[in-house]
Simulated assay, not measured.
Amino acid sequence: MTPARPRAVLPVVSCTEKERKEDAMSLFKKRGHRPEATVDGVLSALSHVMDPELGRDLVSLSMIRNVTVSGGDVSLDLVLTTPASPRKSEMQEAVEKAVLAVPGVSSVDVRAGADVQAAKDPMEGRRPVEGVKNILAVASGKGGVGKSTVSANVAVALGKAGARVGILDADIYGPSIPTLLNLNHHQLMGENGMILPAAADGIKVLSIGFMLEEDSPVIWRGPMLMQALSQFLHGTKWGELDYLVIDLPPGTGDVPLSLVQMTPVAGAIVVTTPQDLALIDVKKAVRMFEKVG
């Protein structure tokens, strides 16, 4: 019969009651301690989130505003340069991810909005339109390429994105905007010597077509055209607009040329079709905008 092996005896380390309490409190602190989130910590994390188009961080661009921290809950405003930004969702997700990685943060509420800034005029002496931050000119080298359709779609898309938008149909010889926006029977009205634009889906609309009988041609020479364009721009109660989209006549004649000479244009869209003849004409329109700024 094999004799039983002696059991291993573990050493017993004695400790005082005070030591046991200190060990227990230390363990409790390690398990229960949570770092506190701070506004500075949130801003520090967001200073590493870059605007993909501007190449700078969101904090230095003042795109992060109204940061509040309550316990582990963080809320802030993400202020974009335009409500129509195609990177809006991407940037919002990047902000949420960066904030949630901050120690002590358990939730984040990112309110995405926009603060549209007026474009800087590279030339002096041009008269801005009162209340209008940016003018977008839509032009073409020749007619029939879809310029007015593009103008209407750009205005509607900006409006749906949350921007304050107006559209001026300056295509004197073929105004199409009233038809596209279902305003064919609108009667032009005024107030205190100013033209009141029509409204369509929240967009302010003015067209030379409002002044004409159906199928009536416009037989105006250069000075009359310039006077009408100036009245439409500066004699209309546009109110506060982020964007005024201007549907220009085709070509590089008096109206497109005068527009870019008399008022600052933030950007231009030149519409064409893929035919060789259309491309030849559209190059002339692009060069006009490049030369006159």
Rank of each mutant, 00 (worst) to 15 (best):
L61T: 01
K30S: 13
V150H: 07
E124S: 09
A84P: 12
G104T: 13
L27R: 14
H48I: 01
R31G: 05
G55Q: 08
R87S: 12
R34P: 01
A118F: 03
V95K: 01
S151T: 13
G71P: 08
I64R: 00
V99I: 12
A45E: 04
S85P: 01
P52D: 12
S75Y: 01
S89Q: 15
V74D: 06
R111Q: 11
G143S: 07
S107N: 14
R126V: 02
P103M: 09
L54V: 10
G71D: 09
K29A: 13
L46V: 01
S148F: 07
S85L: 07
F28E: 12
E93H: 05
N66Q: 14
S44G: 14
V42F: 08
V138N: 08
I64K: 00
Q117H: 11
E124K: 10
E36D: 14
K97W: 00
T38S: 15
V79C: 04
L46D: 02
L46K: 00
A94N: 05
S151C: 08
L61E: 06
L76C: 12
V116S: 09
R34H: 14
R111M: 04
D51S: 00
V150F: 11
N134G: 05
S89A: 15
A24F: 10
T38P: 11
T81P: 04
R126T: 02
A45N: 05
K142R: 06
S26C: 04
D51Y: 01
T149S: 14
D115L: 11
D73H: 15
S107M: 07
E90Q: 14
L27Q: 13
D23N: 07
A137E: 00
S151I: 09
